[in-house]
């Protein structure tokens, strides 16, 4: 396990303010947060590239020391993939780039190690190619291959899906899954909710140098509040049936359950969605529309739970004034 305890770091201004972070081996931990909240700074502490001002970093229970020998041991265990592959690629040819780490760790059979690492990221036969001649996606995969070749226990990736196309994205997902299958611990900083959902086991949100959320499922509403990119422009406003219906300029109104339909009828609200309500409401919100979903109070938790699984801006509007509910028979058509 990689752990930080009360980690503080900064120059003129503090970037990390008492971060307590944990990432398990064999799991993929996703670190999210808007630009400049300290994600990369935190990641750089995890393999000793930065030394904290206060607090400590522990790797498999052992506190990180910053002498040359200890750092070498840490970097053998924890590999770092930079956000910009051009920052990481230090050798002119692909073979040299991948062989660099293992050679410095004293590995033998470099040709086999390089071949295997390149194959695992889909760059088979690229050994003799010059790094400067590779495309952006290929450079990204090369930078991952160059750390895989070192066979670390943990792999840190800073924005691995940034600037890659759909094919590159698919390949990044496959590489992350392959590494997890091999028992590696992965710590991935990303803005990409697609990537986070596809590979993440644990989600951590950062804001203003602190961890503000930790969970097994990402909290989309919090993500939106924190300014994390979710690709969602739609809104799902959920109103319990026994609450005042707010005046909202919604594109669609949905009523879920008999009590909700009664309430809508009583308030003279025209309902657009009456069947498969939750699914269709989420779908409309995903399309970018504003949907007001009136549901029975008993269903509120279910709606919250299901909607939070999708990148929609979920809002609960609850005005605690119990309205008079008419029996359904009184409503007629």
């Amino acid at each position: 396990m990689i752990e930080t305890r009360d980690l503080w770091f900064g120059y003129d201004k503090m970037v990390l303010k008492g971060v307590n972070f944990r990432a398990e081996k064999g799991e993929t931990t996703i670190l999210m947060g808007r630009n400049g909240v300290g994600k990369t700074t935190l990641l750089m502490h995890l393999n000793g590239l930065l030394k904290p001002l206060r607090g400590k970093v522990l790797i498999d229970g052992v506190e990180v020391k910053y002498d040359k020998k200890s750092l070498k041991e840490i970097r053998k265990k924890v590999a770092f993939v930079f956000q910009n592959p051009d920052d990481q690629i230090i050798a002119p040819t692909v073979w040299q780039e991948v062989a660099f780490g293992p050679a410095n760790l004293g590995a033998e059979r470099l040709d086999d190690i390089v071949k295997e690492a390149l194959e695992s990221v889909g760059l088979k036969g690229y050994e003799k190619r010059l790094c400067s001649q590779l495309s952006g996606g290929e450079k990204k995969r090369l930078s991952i291959a160059s750390v895989i070749a070192m066979d670390p226990d943990y792999v840190i990736m800073d924005e691995p899906a940034a600037g890659v196309d759909a094919i590159g994205f698919k390949s990044i997902v496959e590489i992350v899954r392959m590494l997890k299958k091999r028992g590696k611990g992965l710590i991935i900083s990303t803005h990409d909710f697609d990537l986070a959902r596809k590979v993440g086991d644990k989600f951590i949100f950062m804001d203003d140098g602190k961890i503000v959320f930790e969970g097994d499922e990402p909290d989309i509403a919090l993500a939106l509040k924190l300014g994390i990119r979710t690709f969602s422009t739609g809104k799902l406003i959920v109103v319990p049936h026994n609450s005042e219906i707010p005046k909202i300029d919604a594109d669609f109104v949905a009523a879920m359950g008999i009590k909700a339909k009664e309430k809508a009828a009583m308030d003279g609200i025209e309902v657009d969605i009456t069947s498969a309500v939750l699914e269709r409401s989420i779908l409309r919100a995903l399309e970018g529309h504003t949907v007001m979903l009136i549901c029975s109070r008993e269903m509120l938790e279910v709606v919250k739970r299901e909607a939070s699984k999708f990148p929609v801006n979920l809002e609960i509007k609850e005005i605690p004034k119990v309205s008079k509910v008419l029996p359904i028979e009184a409503l007629g058509e």
Binding site: D87, Q96, L105
Partner: peptide
């Protein structure tokens, strides 16, 4: 770039070996 170059080498345990194929 020079700063990042140094960091990239450090992160991969540079100990004076630059392999040549």
């Amino acid at each position: 770039r020079a700063e990042m170059f140094d960091m990239a080498m450090e992160s991969r345990c540079y100990s004076g070996i630059y392999p040549v194929q």
